[in-house]
C-alpha cells in the first residue's frame, strides 16, 4: 500500500505515451484517407480498432481487470456481430424491388 506508485495506478508517463500513440494513429488514418490508398476504408477501421484497444487496455485499465471482465467483452461484441451478420443475410441478398 505504501508503494510510490500504488497498485493499479498507471504512471503518467505511460498515459502520455499512449496519447502520443493515439495521436500518431489519428495522423496515419487521416493520411491514408487523403492519399487514396487502396482499401482505405478497411485500413481506417483497422486503425480505429487499434485506437479503441489502446483506450480499453490503458485508459480504461482493462488489463488490470479480472479474467471474467476481459472475456465477457467478447460476449457483447459477439452479440453485436451476430446481429450484423444476420441482418446482412437479408441486405446482401435482397432482390431489387
Amino acid at each position: 500500500m505504501k508503494l510510490e506508485v500504488p497498485e493499479g495506478a498507471t504512471g503518467y508517463g505511460i498515459l502520455f505515451f499512449i496519447w502520443i500513440a493515439l495521436a500518431a494513429l489519428l495522423a496515419a488514418t487521416i493520411a491514408i484517407a487523403l492519399m487514396n490508398v487502396r482499401m482505405a476504408v478497411a485500413l481506417n477501421f483497422l486503425i480505429a480498432t487499434s485506437m479503441a484497444l489502446l483506450n480499453l487496455f490503458y485508459f480504461m485499465d482493462l488489463r488490470h481487470e479480472d479474467r471474467f471482465l476481459k472475456t465477457i467483452i467478447f460476449l457483447a461484441l459477439f452479440a453485436l456481430t451476430s446481429i450484423i451478420i444476420l441482418t446482412y443475410s437479408d441486405v446482401f441478398y435482397r432482390m431489387a424491388g
Binding site: S89, D90, Y93, R94, G97
Partner: peptide, 16 residues
Amino acid sequence: WVWGHHMFTSGMSNTA
C-alpha cells in the same frame, strides 16, 4: 439469432 422468423412475409431476402 432467430428474430427473422417474425419477418418471413416482410419481403426480406430468401437467404435470410
